[in-house]
Design a protein around this nucleic acid. Structure first.
Length: 438
RNA sequence: GAGGCUGUAGCUCAGUUGGUUAGAGCAUCAGAUUGUGGUUCUGAGGGUCGAGGGUUCGAGACCCUUCAGCCUCCCCA
């Protein structure tokens, strides 16, 4: 038979149990917090019509959409979804009778035809965990989303994370302030977004290559070069610029709400240089990074997109949401040593000796399971050594030995693999043993 | 899209100016130990040296082409 070289598609990964157990744990915490705030689960197809996806993310991002070779060139051309926000917006536009406000969570893989960089947590297939709320322009919603991000990262035991907050309207105001028209917004934002990594001098070089006028660069420097300007500073600068004033007022509400919701002050900050790439954002934008580990990339990112749903339905429908990057979060937790070695959830392995004793082994396993203990039975009556070795490699803590001697006396031997000790108890005492040991 | 690095056993890698039958550790399997793992000891299996071509008496090594992977930048989760 011809063998095929086993290989895995670039930028994708297999998740083996030691990793999958942690992925499930993180998702479990996310779901619990989402539900605590009243978000409901939905799921959408991996495949969407291409024209549903294009034109929402911006030119660069559109090129990263995975197109399928299906009815190419027609309106039925198909693609894998690039994120969960745009498909969700389509769902809202198609289900207009949903009670508003509508709040949903959605945990699914997304695909991007990107150059993978695993070390930075960058893949072609990765999981996004999204929450979005539709139907309100109140900053209360934006604050709630950020509050949830804070709660999840805190429950996951992240110590030093920072949720950076800005507003697209304020960025528009900033471009007006430095004397440029709105067509410059994209270029200016992309450049100043890099200020957390490179110096203003380097940003200046970049702006010059983009032919940004020197007066505008000089004026920009007075605002962003010193690093952090406060929201109060921004308010003064934006006086008389409508878009900027609106952005500042929204952020004032938002930050006040966050404080009232007891989000620790050290966990979030206003940062005027935060831009974010996706085109559909219209109001507040936010993103979480680990200041101690800048190479990992953002753990979460989101914002308000009041016009995206309307682009499908024609009906003005405000919305705000965020995406938590499951793979980024796990990459960070791994690099920070926050994950223990877990290969199984099995607590007890029941041994097999022979065809004669196997029925008693089965009964014993059933008893453990009926008492809520995750239990495996070894399927082959091979040497005990091999069965112990299996328990050891998998990290199963207890081995229950049910041999001829034990059966004869109505007993079972229970060995604690972590200590090397074992006890011989009556099968009637199993329930007590479980409450003492598990 | 731009630049750099690396391809040798399942994994991580060594392999001298080009020279006999290409090695090690880990992992796997067997035995020491027929009812007891993780330690130790002994042994075994496992390779078209990424692929194709070239130079040479002789190529894992040198040259050309090509493919794949990794890293950095850009951008993002």
């Amino acid at each position: 038979m011809q063998t095929i070289q086993p290989r895995i598609f670039k930028g994708t990964r297999d998740f083996l149990p030691d990793e999958m157990i942690h992925r499930e744990e993180v998702q479990k915490i996310m779901r619990a917090v989402f539900q605590k705030y009243g978000f409901e689960p939905i799921e959408t197809p991996a495949i969407e019509y291409l024209n549903v996806l294009t034109g929402k993310y911006g030119e660069d991002a559109d090129r990263l959409i995975y197109r399928l070779n299906y009815k190419t060139g027609t309106k039925d051309e198909a693609a894998l979804h690039y994120d969960l926000t745009v498909p969700f917006s389509r769902v809202i536009a198609m289900n207009r009778d949903l009670p508003k406000p509508f709040k949903r969570y959605q945990i699914q893989p997304v695909w991007r035809a990107d150059t993978p960089q695993p070390k930075q947590g960058r893949f072609r297939e990765f999981y996004q965990c999204d929450i979005d709320a539709v139907g309100s322009k109140s900053m209360l919603v934006d604050a709630e989303i950020i509050c949830i991000v804070n709660e999840i990262l805190t429950r996951l035991q992240f110590k030093n994370f920072l949720i950076k907050i800005n507003n697209r309207k304020l960025l528009n105001g900033l471009v007006a302030y430095v004397g440029l028209d709105s067509s410059w917004t994209g270029e200016i934002c992309r450049s100043i977004d890099k200020l957390d990594k490179i110096s203003f001098e380097e940003v200046t070089e970049e702006l010059r290559t983009k032919n940004v006028p020197e007066e505008a660069i000089a004026k920009l420097k007075t605002v962003v070069a010193g690093g952090t300007i406060t929201l109060a500073d921004a308010e003064k600068l934006m006086a008389g610029i409508p878009s900027g004033e609106e952005g500042v007022n929204e952020l004032k509400d938002l930050l006040a709400y966050l404080e009232s919701m007891n989000v620790p002050k050290e966990n979030f900050v206003f940062e005027i240089s935060l831009a974010r790439g996706l085109d559909y954002y219209t109001g507040p934008i936010f993103e979480t990074t680990l200041p101690d580990h800048p190479h990992i990339g953002s753990l979460t990112g989101g914002g308000r997109y009041d016009e995206l749903i309307g682009s499908f339905s024609g009906i003005d429908t405000p919305a705000v949401g965020t995406s938590l990057g499951l793979d980024r979060i796990l990459a960070a937790m791994k690099q920070l040593g926050m994950l223990d070695k877990a290969q199984t959830r099995t607590k007890v392995l029941v041994t097999s000796f022979s065809k004669e004793t196997i029925l008693d082994s089965l009964k014993l396993a059933s008893k453990f399971r009926s008492l809520g203990v995750n239990t495996e039975i070894y399927h082959e009556a091979v040497k005990l050594k091999n069965q112990f070795s299996y328990a050891d490699k998998k990290g199963i803590r207890f081995v229950a030995i049910m041999g001829e001697d034990e059966i004869k006396n109505g007993q079972v031997t229970l060995k604690d693999m972590s200590k090397g000790s074992q006890v011989l108890i009556s099968t009637d005492a199993i329930e007590q043993w479980i409450s003492d040991n598990l």
